[in-house]
Write a protein that binds this DNA or RNA. Structure first.
Lengths: 255, 255
DNA sequence: GACAGTCTTCCATTTTCCGGAAAGTGCTCT
DNA sequence: AGAGCACTTTCCGGAAAATGGAAGACTGTC
C-alpha cells in the first residue's frame, strides 16, 4: 500500500528524550549561543525536528532565545544544575580551603570529581603568576593522567579500574604513563601515600599533585590538586600541603 | 475490534519532553534526593511511566542514581547549567563587587535577574549580623515587591509591565503596594532616580534598596540590592552605595 | 532581481511512547 | 514464618505523538 511517492514519509528514529538531550549537548564552553541550523548540524537532525524540539525546550525554560534568534542555555537549567549534590554542595564546602591553598602557594588549585571513566573539574582557582593551565570548570579529562584523576581512579570501584587499565590509554605527552602494570603500581602508591603525582603526563611543563577528599563514610568523593611548573619546588612539601588541605575539606564535609 | 477488556490500554497523553522536564521540576532545594514514587507523586504520573522516563534521563546523565536507589540531579546537568550566560557569567563578574559591598555595609547583598514575570536570585551574600533573609540562590519572587524586582520591572519590556500591572498583584505584608497607579509612579521614580526602595513590602522588618546593572548596550540585565533592617540607616546613603556598585559591575561587564 | 542563507509551517506516515496489570524486591509487624 | 505493605521493575497491545520532506516566508548579499 501507499506508493510512498518520492522521499520516504517519516517516522521516529530514536527515543525522544535522547534527541532533546543530544541537542543540549551541542552547547559547550566555546559555543554558548547557537542558531537553529547550527544545532541541527551539530546534532545531525533535520531542521524541522530540531525546530520543534527546541520550541518545547524553550517553552519550559531549558533554553532561551534572544531577540537575535540565537539559542542559549536557560536560567531554569542553571537552577536545576545548582541542585546537583556533588557539584555545588562540595564546591561551597571546599571553596574557602581552596582559596587558602591558592594564597599560600600562589599556584593553580583544582577540585574535581569522577563521573564514569572521566574526571570533571568542579572548581579551579588560577593564580596569575602560575603555569597557565588549560582546564576550565566543567571540562572532562581521562582518569589516567592528571593528579586528581589518579586519586579518583585509585579509589574507584574495581570494575572501573579494570575497564580503564585493560582498554586503550590516552597519551598526552612523551611522559604519559600508558603501561597498565606501571599504572597499577602508581595507583597502589597513591592509596598507600595518600597523594598522587602526575609528572608532566598532561603537558611537558607542568606537574600536578593530588589528594583525596572523603565523605562522612570515608568514601572518596572528590580530589584536590595543585598544578605547578615542572621542577619548581620539592614535590614532597607540596604533597604534605595538598594532603592536609584535602583532609580539612573532608572534615568540613562531615559536619 | 478489540473489546478493550477492562482498563483502557494506553496511548500518549502529552509531549514527551514536557513530561521529562516536569519530572526534573520535582527536585528543589529542600528535596534534592527523591525516590521513584516521590517523583511519580510530585509529577502526577503513573509509576511505570516515571520509571521509564527516569531511566532515559539517567542514561544520559541528567540524573544519577545512588546505591540507595535515590535519584539526584546529575553532574551533566550542572555542567550544562554552567553554560547559561546570564547566570554564571554575570555572577563571576559581579562577585568581587558584591563582596566589597557586603564588607562595607555588613548587610545582605543580592544579585538577581528577570525571568518572565519573576525575579530569580543568582547570588546572595549573607552577613551574620544582618537581618535574616529568606531568599536562597535560585529562588523566584514576584517582580512587584522586592528592591531588585522593582528595578527589573521598571526596565522590562512594556508588555511585561502591563501584564503585571493589569493582573492581580501579590501581597506579602500590609505595606505591599498593590495599587497599579501607585506602582506606575514607583516605577517611574526608579527609572529617574536610578535606584529602587522596597520598604517593608516583603517582610515587615526589612527594607531593600536596588539598582540596575546594564550590559554594553545599556540594556538592564540584572539588579543588585542591599537588604537592611527597617529604620537602621538613612536609605539615601545606601542608595548611593548600591547605585555606585551597580555601575561598577556594569563597567566590569563591558570589558 | 535572482540567489543563498536562514527560519517556519504543514501533513501523511508510522514508530515510539503509554500505563494498567502483575511479578519481583525488601522491609516491618504480628 | 508468613502476612502485610511500600517500593521497584518488567510486560504488552494499542493509540497518539513524533517524524522529516517539501514548500512557503523572510532575510541579507552579489
Amino acid at each position: 500500500m501507499s506508493v510512498s511517492r518520492r522521499g520516504r514519509p517519516a517516522g521516529p528514529t530514536g527515543p525522544v528524550i535522547g534527541r532533546a538531550l543530544r541537542l543540549l549537548d551541542a552547547f559547550d564552553a566555546e559555543r554558548r549561543e547557537l542558531t537553529l541550523s547550527d544545532l541541527a548540524r551539530r546534532a545531525g537532525m533535520p531542521l524541522s525536528t530540531t525546530h520543534r524540539l527546541m520550541q518545547e525546550l524553550c517553552a519550559w525554560g531549558a533554553v532561551e532565545r534572544g531577540t537575535d534568534g540565537l539559542y542559549r542555555i536557560g536560567l531554569r537549567l542553571w537552577e536545576l544544575g545548582s541542585l546537583a549534590p556533588r557539584g555545588p554542595g562540595l564546591r561551597e564546602a571546599a571553596l574557602p580551603f581552596l582559596e587558602d591553598l591558592s594564597r599560600i602557594t600562589r599556584e593553580n588549585v583544582q577540585l574535581a570529581v569522577r563521573e564514569g571513566a572521566e574526571v570533571v573539574f568542579v572548581e579551579r582557582i588560577a593564580s596569575s603568576d602560575a603555569v597557565p593551565v588549560l582546564t576550565r570548570v566543567g571540562d572532562r579529562f581521562a582518569l589516567t593522567a592528571t593528579g586528581v584523576g589518579l586519586v579518583l581512579l585509585a579509589h574507584a570501584p574495581v570494575e572501573v579500574q579494570e575497564e580503564l587499565l585493560n582498554g586503550p590509554i590516552v597519551r598526552y605527552t612523551a611522559k604519559t604513563v600508558t603501561d597498565p602494570a606501571q599504572l597499577r603500581r602508581m595507583l597502589a602508591d597513591v592509596r598507600s601515600n595518600g597523594f598522587s603525582i602526575s609528572d608532566r603526563q598532561v603537558t611537558m611543563d607542568a606537574l600536578s599533585v593530588g589528594a583525596p577528599i572523603r565523605d562522612r563514610q570515608g568514601e572518596v568523593v572528590a580530589a584536590v590538586s595543585l598544578v605547578v611548573r615542572h621542577g619548581s619546588t620539592t614535590s614532597h612539601a607540596l604533597a604534605r600541603l595538598v594532603r592536609t588541605s584535602a583532609q580539612a575539606i573532608s572534615r568540613a564535609l562531615s559536619v
